[in-house]
Design a protein around this nucleic acid. Structure first.
Length: 154
DNA sequence: GCCAACGTTGGC
DNA sequence: GCCAACGTTGGC
């Protein structure tokens, strides 16, 4: 079982948007970065734990706890001409992009990026590194445990 | 809305 | 296969 941090722009899908969806589950479509795709396609399994992170917004930070609820399957938006995620080079026979489903476990009081930066235990998190842009990053179990124990208590 | 950092593209 | 130009990300 692995641990992940997944970024979502609240203007696109916020934690409250996720909570309002049927089954509180969302297809994590629209990832168009090969490294992030490979994480989903090759390493994610149902039951993996996820930190749901709000990015590119007024208060960036961890907004909830979630779980991966499916293995990866072809991202439907790559075939949709009307989608901004349409990829003319992708075909159903040779899909390029994949997504998993993510289900909300619980919303938590926002752990801001500043709060995360305050803890030396988390200094190695990819999301906190300068210039990091990956929207999906693995977490060390120790980082997950630290955050859950110290920062995400109900 | 600025801009540094990074990924991708495409000419050569 | 190099690398300059370009587009995107995302914190500030």
């Amino acid at each position: 079982m692995r641990y992940w941090l997944m970024k979502s722009e609240p203007s696109d899908c916020s934690i409250d948007d996720l909570a309002a969806l049927p089954g509180q589950t969302v297809a994590w479509y629209g990832v168009r970065n090969y490294q992030a795709r490979n994480f989903m396609r090759d390493q994610m399994r149902a039951g993996d734990s996820v930190l749901f992170y709000h990015s590119n917004c007024k208060e960036p930070g961890i907004a909830g706890i979630a779980k991966v609820s499916s293995t990866a399957y072809p991202d439907a938006t790559q075939f949709d001409r009307n989608s901004k995620y349409f990829d003319p080079k992708a075909t159903p026979e040779q899909p390029r992009w994949f997504n998993v489903d993510v289900r909300l476990e619980r919303k938590i009081p926002l752990i801001s990026i500043n709060a995360l930066r305050r803890h030396p235990e988390l200094a190695r998190m990819r999301t906190l590194q300068r210039g990091n842009r990956l929207s999906i990053t693995p977490l060390d179990p120790a980082e997950w445990n630290f955050i859950l124990k110290n920062l995400a208590n109900p």
